[in-house]
């Protein structure tokens, strides 16, 4: 009798599990649809001849395919130079960010010094305070860049205004290289946090054995600690790359004329077409070009994501972000 009861309970258990897996399927399917919906729409509209945009019999699959939208989007966006500028900016910034943030994170994770906790709070402060609030003074700073106060000292010594010795960095990539190198670039605080967590979780013995082998702090860091942080480095690279790729507000301020990356070119192209961002005139041609432009814009990142997706998830998981 006892056996029978057990059997019944097991069957009930099996049933609930089956019901749950069906519910789970619909849930995941539905939410995936919400996520994929705009992307599918981009894909569908990018290759749709503009004549079919207002055709109510065409919803998803165009009756015929065309490359005209893509072609005009590419010429509007100056695709070749845009993609080159984006790649230089994104790869450069990602590399610089890895360099500084890993170092800073290591410093915070593995050494005890008196101001460690208050200084780390300041790192968190850089995450919380958005760039928007300080981007105007930063603009002025780059417009009359004073080399960390050197120009001001020179100005005081020679009795001239410091702007004589200052340099205009606007429209040069230095406006991105400098902050990212010094660990205050786009979301650098998040990366410092990630690296700190990663180094904190590594066993203490690693450093001790390196010390016995006669490594100094820098050598230990380069030869022992960094190779152990590979997955975090990869994650940070991907995040940094993607966030710089999507960035267009800072880019618009710091690189208004030269070296415009793809995001800005796409934004300017759509604004140019609409005439005014505030006025939305839904002419199918504009929509076609916009959708095709959006497709061409996300295509490189999407390709990287599809290739790197596996490490990406694993990297974040193994970096063990703990609160």
């Amino acid at each position: 009798m006892k056996k029978g009861k057990m059997f019944g309970r097991q069957r009930l258990h099996k049933l609930t599990r089956m019901l749950w897996s069906i519910a789970r399927f619909f849930l995941i399917f539905g939410l995936s649809f919400v996520i994929l919906f705009p992307l599918l729409q981009i894909l569908s509209k990018a290759f749709m001849p503009i004549g079919q945009f207002l055709d109510t019999s065409v919803v998803w699959i165009p009756k015929s395919l065309t490359l005209n939208n893509v072609r005009s989007a590419m010429s509007f966006m100056e695709y070749g130079s845009g993609i080159w500028n984006s790649l230089v900016l994104c790869i450069g910034c990602a590399a610089l960010q890895i360099f500084t943030c890993a170092m800073t994170g290591y410093g915070f994770a593995r050494f005890r010094f008196r101001l460690r906790e208050p200084l780390f709070l300041l790192v968190l402060l850089t995450i919380i305070i958005p760039t928007q609030i300080i981007f105007l003074p930063t603009y002025v700073q780059y417009r009359f860049f004073d080399f960390f106060g050197v120009s001001r000292i020179l100005g005081m010594v020679t009795g001239q205004d410091y702007t004589v010795f200052a340099k205009n960095l606007i429209d040069t990539r230095w406006t991105f290289w400098i902050p990212t190198f010094f660990g205050v670039g786009i979301r650098s605080g998040v990366f410092i946090y990630l690296f700190r967590q990663c180094f904190r979780n590594l066993p203490k013995e690693l450093e001790e054995s390196a010390k016995i082998d006669g490594c100094n702090a820098v050598m230990t860091y380069i030869k022992v600690m960094l190779p152990n942080a590979k997955s975090t480095i990869l994650t940070v690279f991907l995040f940094s790359f993607v966030w710089h790729w999507n960035e267009y507000i800072l880019v618009r301020t710091y690189l208004p004329q030269n070296h415009q990356p793809l995001a800005l070119k796409l934004k300017l192209a759509t604004e140019l077409m609409v005439g005014n961002a505030a006025v939305r005139v839904n002419i199918p041609a504009q929509m076609g070009i916009t959708y095709a432009g959006a497709l061409m814009f996300i295509l490189p990142v999407l390709a990287i994501y599809i290739v790197a997706q596996k490490w990406f998830v694993e990297g974040v998981e193994s970096s063990g972000i703990k609160g």
Partner: peptide, 21 residues
């Protein structure tokens, strides 16, 4: 050594974050 490792960030924080703020 700890300060040395975070020095680059510290300079950046003071000149490129605190000052603009």
């Amino acid at each position: 050594t700890g300060y040395a490792f975070i020095s680059i960030w510290l300079i950046g924080f003071i000149f490129l974050f605190l000052r603009p703020l």
